[in-house]
């Protein structure tokens, strides 16, 4: 049975490359945190960047998002889903952050608000 020609170069080499890259990206992220190379916002950005990089690696090498049969539909639906995921996560963080801020549940928040308003 010839299945080989259906797949986009799904060879041992491509799986091995994907695997090696993923290990490298994982260890890099781990090292960034344990060796305290970066902190705060920059660390968040770097970690997310490394995660996204590994996502792309795995989508390409493991999930064969570049293959000819069905590849376009896969990519299109994946990009739409990615956008939805961003809306759900970022949207929630943005909205809930604002709601929590307005709750003024932390001590001194009311004071800060009044000071900020000044002309209130």
């Amino acid at each position: 049975m010839e299945h080989a020609e259906h797949k986009q170069q799904a060879t041992l080499k491509s799986y091995a490359i994907g695997f090696a890259l993923s290990i490298a990206l994982t260890l890099a992220a781990y090292g960034l945190v344990t060796e305290r190379v970066l902190v705060g916002g920059t660390l968040v950005a770097a970690l997310l960047g490394l995660a996204v990089a590994q996502l792309v690696v795995q989508m390409w090498f493991f999930l064969h998002i570049g293959e000819e049969t069905g590849g376009r539909l896969k990519l299109a639906t994946f990009l739409v889903t990615l956008m939805l995921v961003l809306i759900v996560v970022a949207g929630s963080i943005w909205i809930m952050g604002h709601l929590n801020y307005q709750m003024m549940s932390s001590p001194g928040a009311m004071q800060k608000y009044i000071e900020g308003q000044q002309a209130f």
């Binding site: 943005w94 909205i95 709601l99 307005q102």
Partner: peptide
């Protein structure tokens, strides 16, 4: 349709910007 959901809770207090 996927970008408007907060209009169901304008009064929950997310503030003017949101």
């Amino acid at each position: 349709a996927g970008l408007v959901w907060l209009h169901h809770f304008f009064t929950m207090g997310a503030g003017a910007d949101v």
